[in-house]
């Protein structure tokens, strides 16, 4: 038998598909052939590496699934609590919440500006003067306004 034929037996042996008689012949050859021993070692190493890669891929897939499920479970809602509604949650979508927040800010800014810029009312004092007669003429005093 050639080394190539023995290698095929080694391949079947690692799969558990070699008969007892064939295994005996293969091991007898392995005791004298370093090339085939090396092939056997490499094949066992390859199997271990493939198993490790399989587990790594399965783990990566499981992580991808978990991440996808996690992302699907998150919704952009803002819980709002109201007095007397402690057991109820009102959810608003993020855009609506944002619009309401902006409107509130604008309203408060406008109100603040209006309050700051309104001038204080002016103080008006009306002074009435008595009517007097000077040399037969009746003189009426014009009311004056003083601030």
């Amino acid at each position: 038998m050639t080394c190539l034929e023995h290698e095929e037996h080694i391949s079947r042996y690692v799969d558990g598909e070699l008969s007892e008689g064939e295994s005996g012949s293969m091991f007898a050859h392995l005791t004298v052939c370093s090339h085939c021993r090396s092939f056997m070692r490499e094949l066992l190493w390859l199997r271990a590496e493939l198993m490790s890669e399989k587990e790594k891929t399965a783990f990566d897939l499981a992580m991808q699934d978990a991440e996808a499920k996690h992302l699907a479970g998150v919704s952009w809602t803002t819980p709002v609590r109201r007095a007397g509604w402690s057991s109820r949650r009102v959810s608003l979508s993020l855009p609506i919440t944002a619009v309401i927040a902006i409107l509130l800010l604008l309203t408060s800014a406008l109100l603040t500006r209006a309050i700051v810029e309104t001038p204080p009312p002016k103080e008006v004092i009306l002074i009435s003067l008595p009517t007097v007669e000077v040399q037969g003429y009746r003189v009426e005093a014009t009311p004056t306004v003083r601030q």
Partner: peptide, 20 residues
């Protein structure tokens, strides 16, 4: 299957031998 598997392993090992 036996033959194909054997040749597939040989080719795979050929690629991976430097790494091994």
């Amino acid at each position: 299957v036996k033959s194909r598997l054997f040749h597939a392993r040989k080719v795979l090992l050929e690629q991976l031998r430097p790494f091994f």
